[in-house]
Simulated assay, not measured.
Amino acid sequence: MTLSFDGTVIVPAADPDDGERTATSLAPHLTASSKVIVVNVVEKSGGGIDKAPVAQREEHAEDIFRRTRSPLEQTDATVETAVLYGTDIVERVFTEAGDRNADAVVFVPRAGNRLAELLTGDVARRMVKEASVPVVALPQTDV
Rank of each mutant, 00 (worst) to 15 (best):
Glu73His: 09
Pro16Cys: 09
Val9Ala: 09
Gly98Gln: 13
Asp76Gly: 09
Gly7Ser: 01
Asn101Trp: 01
Val42Arg: 12
Thr95Gln: 10
Asp6Trp: 02
Tyr85Trp: 10
Thr31Phe: 08
Arg21Gln: 14
Asp6Gln: 11
His29Cys: 03
Arg92Gly: 11
Pro109Phe: 07
Gly86Ser: 04
Ile49Met: 15
Phe94Ile: 00
Ala102Phe: 02
Glu96Gln: 11
Leu3Val: 15
Ala131Asn: 05
Gln74Ser: 13
Phe107Leu: 10
Thr81Arg: 02
Lys35Gly: 02
Pro53Arg: 06
Asp142Ile: 14
Thr24Phe: 05
Asn101Ser: 13
Ala111His: 12
Val123Gly: 13
Asn113Tyr: 05
Leu84Gln: 04
Leu72Asn: 05
Val79Gly: 03
Val41Phe: 13
Glu20Met: 13
Leu26Phe: 02
Asp15Leu: 04
Lys51Ser: 14
Asp63Thr: 10
Lys44His: 10
Gln56Thr: 15
Leu3Gly: 05
Leu138Ser: 08
Gly48Arg: 13
Arg57Ser: 15
Ser25Glu: 07
Leu72Pro: 01
Leu118Tyr: 14
Val143Cys: 00
Asp63Cys: 06
Ala27Asn: 07
Val106Phe: 02
Gly121Thr: 06
Ile10Trp: 01
Ala52Trp: 14
Ala27Leu: 04
Phe94Cys: 01
Pro109Ile: 00
Val133Pro: 00
Ile49Phe: 15
Thr95Ala: 00
Arg67Gln: 12
Arg110Thr: 15
Ala52His: 12
Met127Val: 04
Ala137Asn: 02
Arg110Lys: 10
Pro109Arg: 07
Val128Gln: 01
Val128Pro: 03
Val90Gln: 04
Ser25Gln: 12
Ser132His: 09
Gly19Glu: 06
Asp50Ser: 12
Val9Gln: 04
Glu96Ala: 14
Arg21Ala: 15
Gly86Val: 06
Glu73Met: 03
Leu115Glu: 03
Gly19Trp: 01
Ala14Gln: 10
Ala13Trp: 06
Leu118Val: 11
Gly46Arg: 05
Thr81Tyr: 00
Gly7Cys: 11
Glu96Tyr: 12
Phe94Asp: 04
